[in-house]
Design a protein around this nucleic acid. Structure first.
Length: 566
DNA sequence: GCCGTTTTCGGCCCGACTGTTTTCAGTCG
């Protein structure tokens, strides 16, 4: 993936933040933000001399990017960094705290970090300060609390990118694999575990990598570092002969491992990272499959290794055949630059075809989300463009869809006769997140019962580390979804992972079906479905549970039938 | 700072919500 793009985009995001903090022109701030978004979402790697090829990058930003590609920074960024302490920028990450307030707190009260803000709140120093009423202070306190709960953990998208980078930086290894919570596809990750087999020099290769900020500990068999972004990475070197048992041990979860060790003990054996052994005799160690087989079990896919019934199922040889990314035949929730995507309809469709999809729904936002400036006329014009574009893709069916807005009362943008003109109708909550449980439950059930609604998009609306899930009686909502044949989305965006896997389990128990969608706003986002598949696997979903693994005809019949049946 | 069937200057996603305010500023999607 385009690593230079992400680094350059992050530099521009930082510059936009610092520029905003300095009171810079908001339109210029937005230009930097837009350029960052466009660069991050650009399907091609940035190359020197080609920054201007990215839409939204003009001559001024191109010059900054070119300088960044050359030396990892640019002059204007350096100057602003010298003026504004990094902690002040981090203040802006506190929900409800923007640039104006951050600068005010810094200038007037000397608050230059989230920590000093927390101290100021606890010490009552904000009392009586202009604009800092009790509710504002309480909101800030809660925002800081929410950040702390997310703690040092990052979402899986960040963790996977770093883990991939670590693996690629160790080409001298005989074997290398990511273990731990990343391998289990946990929605958030506290540290990254990587396993290698090979010479001891790999450790010094590792500590010399540019992403390493600090070496916490380093020996021949285990090295721990902290990266620039604050994440800890543990690299463990194991003998190739015990690769399987080591991978098993370091993949976890701890609870799963405990259960396996108990099984071994019951047979009079011992299981450790070095192997499954009977006294001095090693029974299995080279591969995970051998170890599980020796214990009389099926190999357990890592996303299931949480001691939530998978051990028993594996002993009975009744593990589900989990849905995989290759099973996805289509994507039912994507955007274009007609609303808030950054790529054209043509480019998104081409990328979808290149991914081998059999069907692809374009679901731009509907008019009730006013910021998107959508109109029925625009939607109908898009439908015509889509029909013309279809001729280019005999192997892929283009579906015209929409992402509706579920209003506070559960209603959506258009009347049924308009909705029926769309092949795919996703409906999502985008506002009024703080309704009571009773109101939110009624709202979501009303959406399920609307015959024009086929899929509920990102049902909880959470954003990891930023916004909690809305409060609803999920059992009641999922029962309504099952009863009406309304599909529940697993939004694959790694900072959403929404539904979360625990709720997917609950919903499946109620008989609901799911779609695993990218919610792509740019070409590279189409690949995010790997994360959505991880959520589904952790919940034990099979192909049958996921409607966009189905052949198109079956999918369309299901969507239509569920609408008719209400 | 970007961009151009509104076109080389003058717009730029726009409205709602929140908490504070006495007429509005900041934040968010």
């Amino acid at each position: 993936m385009a690593r230079a793009n992400e680094a350059a985009a992050e530099a521009l995001r930082e510059y936009a933040d610092l520029f905003a903090l300095e009171g810079g022109d908001p339109f210029r701030v937005r230009s930097y933000q837009r350029a960052a978004k466009a660069i991050a979402g650009h399907p091609e790697d940035l190359r020197p001399g080609h920054a201007r090829d990215v839409p939204g990058v003009g001559s001024a930003i191109a010059a900054k990017v070119e300088e960044f590609l050359g030396r990892g920074g640019f002059r204007q960024l350096d100057e602003l960094r010298a003026k504004v302490p990094p902690g002040v920028r981090r203040l802006m990450a506190v929900p409800s705290l923007g640039p104006k307030t951050a600068l005010f707190l810094y200038r007037e009260l000397g608050i230059d970090s989230v920590e000093s803000l927390a101290q100021a709140i606890d010490g009552g120093r904000l009392r009586g300060v202009r604009g800092m009423g009790p509710k504002t202070v309480e909101n800030l306190r809660r925002g800081i609390e929410r950040q702390r709960q997310a703690g040092e953990r990052v979402h899986l998208g960040v963790a996977c990118a770093l883990a991939d980078q670590v693996v690629e930086s160790l080409p001298g290894a005989e074997r290398v694999a990511v273990a731990g919570s990343v391998r289990r596809m946990c929605e958030t990750v506290g540290d990254i575990d990587v396993l290698v087999a090979g010479p001891a020099e790999l450790m010094s290769v590792f500590t010399a990598q540019p992403y390493v900020a600090e070496v916490l500990a380093s020996g021949d068999d285990k090295t721990s570092v902290r990266t620039e972004q604050g994440l800890q990475v543990d690299l463990r070197r194991v003998p190739v002969g015990s690769w399987g048992s080591a991978l098993l041990y370091f993949t976890g979860s701890a609870d799963h491992n405990v259960r396996l060790r108990e099984l071994a003990v019951r047979k009079g054996w011992k299981l450790s990272e070095y192997g499954l052994s009977d006294g001095d005799r090693v029974l299995a160690s080279r591969t995970e499959e051998e170890v599980y087989a020796a214990l009389g079990m099926q190999w357990v896919p890592p996303p299931l290794r949480e001691d939530r019934g998978e051990v028993e199922a594996a002993l009975r040889h009744e593990l589900p055949v989990l849905v995989e990314q290759a099973d996805l035949r289509g994507d039912l929730h994507t955007h274009t630059d007609l609303t808030d995507g950054i790529a054209s309809l043509e480019d998104m469709a081409a990328a979808a075809a290149a991914r081998g999809l059999a069907y692809y729904a374009v679901t731009d936002h509907a008019p009730d989300l006013a910021m998107q400036r959508m109109t029925l006329e625009k939607a109908l014009a898009q439908r015509e463009s889509l029909a013309r574009l279809q001729e280019r893709y005999p192997g892929m069916r283009l579906l015209h869809g929409t992402e509706l807005n579920i209003g506070p009362d559960g209603s959506v943008d258009w009347p049924l006769e308009v909705l029926e003109g769309f092949d795919v109708r996703v409906a999502s909550v985008h506002s009024h997140f703080t309704q009571s449980r009773a109101e939110m439950t009624r709202r979501l059930i009303a959406a399920c019962e609307n015959p024009g609604v086929q899929i509920i998009g990102h049902p909880t609306t959470r954003k990891i580390g930023r916004r909690p899930m809305v409060d609803a009686d999920w059992t009641a909502v999922f029962q309504a979804a099952a009863r009406t044949g309304t599909v529940l989305e697993i939004d694959s965006y790694p900072d959403r992972a929404d539904l979360p896997s625990d709720l997917v389990r609950l919903a499946r128990h109620q008989g609901a079906r799911f779609s695993i969608d990218s919610d792509a706003h740019a070409v590279p986002h189409l690949a995010h479905t790997r994360f959505g598949v991880g959520v589904a696997q952790r919940a034990g979903l099979t192909r049958e549970d996921v409607v966009n693994t189905w052949p198109l005809e079956r999918l369309l019949a299901f969507l239509k039938g569920s609408a008719d049946g209400r």
